[in-house]
Amino acid sequence: MSDEEPRQKSMAMVVMSGDMDKLFGAFIIATGAAAMGMEVTMFFTFWGLRAIKKNVSTGKTLFGRMLGVMYGGDIMKANPSMFSFGGMGRWMFGKMMGNHNVSKLSELRDLAIDLGVNMYGCQMSMDVMEIPQEAFIDGVKDPVGVGFFIMKAQDAEIQLFI
């Protein structure tokens, strides 16, 4: 068998940011890589966890519930890293992107899942931030830790930290 398929190339990405602009970057790169035939792993940690969360309230302890209120909602609550102005920036960028026909963040994320991008929550930050697996959208795989990410990253052609 001479025309054996070469090993599938892969990309491993940490998504720590919850900023709108950085999430756009993360999901555009992930969908692009998946379209180009790569196996893609996205490892969501800390502020990035909201990007894969449903719009449900979370938190068990007082602090956890406070966090769930202050950093609640879902990916559409993501604010730009500059010119946030308490939500004004999100509205303005949302308008501008809509005017230029850019997909919504949630649409890009759902497209990534359709394209087979593998998404994982970081178990440790889920514990700290009191966000259970049930709070995540369908398609997010069971939580993993840094060992799993390193295993994926050391085999990957592309590693990114966003």
Binding site: T31, A35, N101, V102, L111
Partner: peptide
Amino acid sequence: KGLLCPLPMVKVSQ
């Protein structure tokens, strides 16, 4: 037409 990055490439791939 009207689609922006990364959608043209994604649609071809799909």
